[in-house]
């Protein structure tokens, strides 16, 4: 589903070029639940942003569902992401002025889906996530866990092939975190490919594969130990 070949990302600063990702080679198959781990500044979120196609300034090759993302125009990438990717954020990023139902509906409005169809999809997901009673509440009226639940509902409303989650439980206490991770597992079992970034070993345990980053280098991949070793070799 995803193939990254020799992907690199750097920023220019006064001190010169700062590399945040070096020679990343990564294959993700449909149905996988990948966890990206590593210390702060390792490049986890940068990698996630590339996968989300929010970042355009990287080098290397990126294939998504056999499409060469690196050859696509910005608009084409955005369209590809809109159709196939859902995103969950640590800070939920719900829009304060929209109700729960409206927040969930938001990605659909960008896909020009007719209103009755959208309403049905929103009703269905509210039911699936058991938050029908909250549909008319505003984010400020929800707990953190409930907000993240809405965030996930919003991310999966259009049945994305890939769900990306950046520290999805970072702002939640352990019980809420467990509930969210259970939900991720269910989604994964239903066929959604998931890539999550986390510091939590407990959350990582819900996944099927762990990738570790350090200083921008891929230092470990539980699926391909040899790639990690090669990468280690490349660093030295």
């Amino acid at each position: 589903m995803i193939a990254l070949n020799n992907v690199e990302r750097s920023y220019k600063s006064g001190a010169g070029q700062i590399w945040v990702l070096r020679r990343i080679h990564l294959d993700i198959q449909p149905g996988e639940f990948v966890t990206i781990m590593g210390p702060s500044g390792a490049g986890k979120s940068s990698l996630l942003n590339i996968l989300a196609m929010l970042d355009d300034h990287w080098q290397g090759e990126f294939f998504f569902q056999w499409q060469a993302v690196h050859t696509l125009q910005r608009k084409q990438r955005a369209e590809l992401a809109r159709r196939n990717i859902g995103m969950v954020f640590q800070s939920y990023h719900l829009l304060d002025d929209l109700t729960v139902a409206e927040n969930i509906d938001l990605p659909l409005t960008y896909k020009n889906i007719p209103a009755p169809e959208r309403q049905a999809m929103v009703a269905d997901i509210l039911d699936r996530f058991r938050i029908v009673a909250k549909k008319d509440l505003f984010p400020s009226q929800l707990s953190g866990g409930q907000q993240q639940l809405v965030g996930i509902a919003r991310a999966v409303i259009h049945n994305p092939a890939l769900l990306l989650a950046d520290e999805p439980t970072g702002n939640l206490h352990s019980t809420q975190a467990r509930e969210i991770m259970e939900l991720f597992r269910t989604l994964n079992q239903q066929g959604t490919t998931i890539v999550q970034v986390t510091h939590s070993e407990a959350n990582a345990a819900y996944g099927t594969r762990i990738v570790e980053l350090r200083d921008g280098w891929m230092t470990m991949d539980t699926k391909h130990p040899e790639l990690a070793a090669a990468s280690q070799g490349g660093r030295s």
Partner: peptide
């Protein structure tokens, strides 16, 4: 700005 960033992340086009 942040809200607009979220919208882009959720699939809104620049024109939208």
């Amino acid at each position: 700005m942040k809200e607009l960033g979220i919208r882009v992340a959720l699939g809104a086009s620049r024109v939208q």
